[in-house]
Amino acid sequence: MNETKKHIVLVDADALAQARFNTFFSKSEVEVNSFASAMGAIQYIKQSGEPDLLLIEENVKPLGAIQTLNYLKEQVNFKGSVMLIANSESLVSKSADFVRFLSKPFKNEDIGFVKTFLQLPCSPEEPEEQIYSLNYLIELSDGDAEFIRESISIFKDSVTPRLEEMLQFYKEEAYEEVSKVAHSLKPSFEMLQNSKAAQLSNELAHKITGTAMFPLINELIEEHKKMQEALKDDFPEVYSV
Score class of each variant (00 low, 15 high):
Gly49Lys: 09
Val60Phe: 02
Lys27Glu: 14
Ser90His: 06
Ser88Ile: 00
Leu192Thr: 04
Glu229Trp: 07
Gln43Val: 12
Phe98Trp: 04
Ile56His: 01
Ala96Lys: 14
Glu190Phe: 08
Phe106Thr: 01
Glu203Ser: 13
Val76Cys: 07
Lys225Val: 11
Leu120Arg: 05
Lys107Ser: 11
Leu102Tyr: 08
Ser90Trp: 08
Thr160Arg: 12
Gln228Phe: 07
Val159Gln: 04
Asn108Glu: 10
Gln75Glu: 09
Glu74Gln: 14
Thr211Tyr: 14
Glu172Asp: 15
Glu128Arg: 13
Gln193Ile: 11
Val60Lys: 02
Cys122Ser: 13
Phe35Gln: 00
Ser158Phe: 15
Ala96Met: 11
Glu146Phe: 06
Asn70Ile: 03
Glu128Gly: 14
Asn218Arg: 14
Ala38Glu: 02
Ser88Tyr: 14
Pro121Phe: 09
Asp97Ile: 06
Phe98Pro: 01
Val30Ile: 07
Phe214Ser: 08
Ile111Cys: 01
Gly210Gln: 13
Gln119Ser: 08
Glu58Cys: 00
Cys122Pro: 05
Ala36Trp: 06
Lys232Ala: 09
Ser179Gly: 13
Ala17Ser: 09
Ser188Thr: 10
Leu10Lys: 01
Gln47Thr: 14
Ala205Asp: 03
Glu164Asn: 15
Val76Ser: 02
Thr116Glu: 11
Met39Pro: 03
Lys207Pro: 04
Met227Asp: 06
Lys186Ala: 08
Phe235Arg: 04
Val32Tyr: 09
Ile138Trp: 11
Lys232Leu: 07
Gly143Val: 04
Leu192His: 05
Gly64His: 03
Ser184Val: 09
Arg100Val: 01
Glu126Ala: 13
Glu57Asn: 10
Gly112Arg: 02
Ile42Arg: 00
Tyr170Trp: 15
Lys46Leu: 07
Ala19Thr: 08
Gln67Trp: 02
Glu109Cys: 07
Ala13Glu: 12
Ile66Asp: 08
Gly49Cys: 04
Lys226Thr: 10
Gly64Pro: 02
Arg20Pro: 03
Lys104Thr: 06
Lys46Ser: 10
Glu129Asn: 12
Gln67Pro: 03
Val92Glu: 00
Ala205Arg: 05
Glu128Tyr: 14
Ile131Asp: 10
Leu53Arg: 02
Met1Tyr: 13
